[in-house]
Design a protein around this nucleic acid. Structure first.
Lengths: 211, 211
DNA sequence: GGTGCGTGCAAGTGGACACTTGCACGCAGC
DNA sequence: GCTGCGTGCAAGTGTCCACTTGCACGCACC
């Protein structure tokens, strides 16, 4: 209904498909079912429009957060990873475009680094809490572990569609696998029934698996 | 000297800075110190030129490979990670551009997924060798561990320049940190003096660290 | 019923782009 | 000395792009 929002929305969609140079004002106007001139009347220039549209995307946060008092790390961490994977997977196109534009147009995607920074910092704090309570082996490097788990999740979200065969399958189990691995790496004992051993490390679809 | 190679080289450079749409034939010709017309005489079209140029980049492989007979996993794996990080870091701009173009121009970067596939598969095989020799805890998920380590390395190579504060520092120690974590995750005991405990988990530069 | 405001539409401007054509020059080999 | 090849250069074509202008229409509010 609101013309301005309609245009912003369309611009975000077009940008995530075509990047900055591919987002012509014609395409955006068409996607918004609005006259091209109207776009200029509202935003003045393509650059200003896209900047605002992309800012809007990057502002949306990942939601789910880790508990202040860890009680069941495997479960809590798996949930958190799941929600992060989902969040990143849904936004993979925009993220890819932002990563590619960042060097050429830093002002466009300035806020794009906020989300990963926040996520890493939150995860790191969680690991430190575990350490402080003596629930870990004590001698691990929390920032490295946080970077590693975030990396696994990021990589999965960005790459799975293009090369599904290099990731643990089915996709729905991947977050649990990553969470389990990182917890073992930092020496957190697994609850007996919860996550110790994946029910089947050999999955029923070996023909396409990594050899 | 060879005009054709000169142009290909320039095209690769320009593409990695500006992406497909930003790689105008004028810019490429200028970067190659060649007349724009010459570009067309050699390659017929911008698309054909860029396809060949990008293929050339993706063909270059990561070099360093993991030993058939593991003798010192922490050291071997750290070396391998170091070489992979270096390889990816040097190519980060092209990789970012390819990731961003992949959906719109799949033919352009078709071979871009080869390198990660090969690396993951090699790493996975190495983990399986360790498992077969009983050097691991035995119940871990090799593909997940491989995906995770590759993810950490990929993430580091792609993100460190834009947000250095979320990665383990100094950069030169990161590969060892990741390797140590993944080895602990899969239950490989650390050699006493080699890598058990990073000499200082707290680094002397706390002001900019993740909080 | 008149005044704005939001919007559409037609037309156009200047520039960039991919790509073409035609010609001139210089150098290597016969 | 002539030929052919590789290259540069000047010019131009048609398309697309960002962005502008001017006008007309319709709806809301006074």
């Amino acid at each position: 209904m609101d013309t301005r929002e309609t245009i912003l929305d369309a611009a975000a969609r077009v940008f995530s498909q075509h990047g900055f140079r591919g987002s012509t004002t014609r395409r955006i106007a068409e996607a918004a079912s609005v006259n091209e001139v109207t776009v200029f009347r509202y935003f003045g220039s393509k650059a200003a429009l896209l900047q605002e549209a992309v800012k809007g995307i990057n502002a949306s946060s990942a939601g789910n957060s880790l508990p202040k008092d860890p009680v069941d790390p495997p479960v809590e961490l798996t949930r958190w990873c799941e929600s992060l994977v989902e969040h990143l997977t849904l936004r993979q196109s925009v993220i890819r475009k932002c990563m590619s534009e960042l060097e050429e147009r830093p002002e466009l995607a300035a806020r794009a680094t906020d989300a990963p920074k926040r996520a890493t910092s939150e995860l790191c704090a969680y690991f430190r809490r575990l350490k402080a309570r003596g629930q870990t082996s004590g001698d691990f490097d929390a920032p490295a572990a946080a970077a590693m788990l975030i990396g696994a999740i990021f990589h999965d979200a960005m790459g799975r569609r293009m090369m599904p065969e290099i990731f643990p399958r089915p996709a729905r189990n991947a977050p649990r696998r990553y969470a389990d691995l990182i917890l073992r790496a930092i020496g957190v004992g697994q609850k007996p029934g919860a996550a110790a051993k994946p029910p089947s490390a050999r999955r029923p679809n070996p023909s396409t698996a990594v050899k």
